[in-house]
């Protein structure tokens, strides 16, 4: 399984009710159904990805995240997962609220725009950074709301969300001493497990 998904999978409690936003080919849900007996659903809009989910027997629902999660009841899931999709939605802040309305907790992963390569790229070339974890050009990127880990945590504080767990890694999904020391400078991808706070 994709390494980042394995990290998420390890965070999921057996038997949990899981909603996976932007579930892609259903790899995570397939694993969770098989190994953690979860009752899971994935939302996806890419027809070829949906077909892959059908092949796998994953509960996939064709639904655009930008239309919100209004069709799901409050507290209807234990966990709402969104892997590397936050930066590509129209209203990430509103969607975060929705995730924590529908789910008791959520796991969000996203690429770090504050990584030192991005910073030096912009500083030295005066151009929008292109990096291993951010490979698109400014005009063809699906990532319309890039942020740094610091930005994200600021938003969580403003919303009074509880950061239950955070895991920061490099592009190979490995942690490291430098990353632990200065995550916002050396980490490329972060996993946040969030709760509603007080």
């Amino acid at each position: 399984m994709r390494q980042d998904l394995q990290i998420i999978a390890d965070l999921v409690r057996p038997g949990a009710r899981v909603l996976d936003l932007g579930c892609g080919d259903g790899e995570l849900l397939h694993y969770l159904q098989l190994h953690k007996q979860v009752n899971g659903y994935g939302l996806e809009i890419d027809p070829s990805m949906i077909t892959r989910c059908i092949q796998r027997g994953v509960n996939v629902i064709e639904q655009d995240l930008d239309q919100g999660l209004g069709n799901f009841a409050d507290n209807s899931f234990d966990l709402v997962v969104m892997a590397e999709t936050l930066q590509a939605v129209r209203q990430p802040d509103a969607l975060l609220d929705e995730m924590l309305r529908v789910g008791e907790q959520c796991i969000v992963t996203f690429p770090n725009f504050g990584h030192w390569r991005c910073r030096t790229y912009l500083a030295t070339r005066g151009a929008m950074p292109i990096a291993k974890h951010l490979p698109h050009r400014w005009y063809d990127t699906p990532n319309i709301h890039l942020c740094t880990f610091a930005d994200f945590e600021r938003l969580c504080r403003a919303k009074e969300l509880e950061i239950i767990e955070r895991f920061v890694s490099d592009t190979s999904y490995r942690p490291g001493p430098l990353i632990n020391l200065l995550p916002n400078l050396f980490g490329t991808i972060a996993y946040y497990r969030l709760g509603r706070g007080q």
């Binding site: 659903y41 996939v60 629902i61 064709e62």
Partner: peptide, 19 residues
């Protein structure tokens, strides 16, 4: 169709939905 799908999700049934 979405009404059916939403109710199936709430009832925790296996459902695949395409549009």
């Amino acid at each position: 169709s979405q009404e059916i799908v939403n109710a199936l999700v709430a009832a925790r049934r296996n459902v695949i939905s395409t549009i």
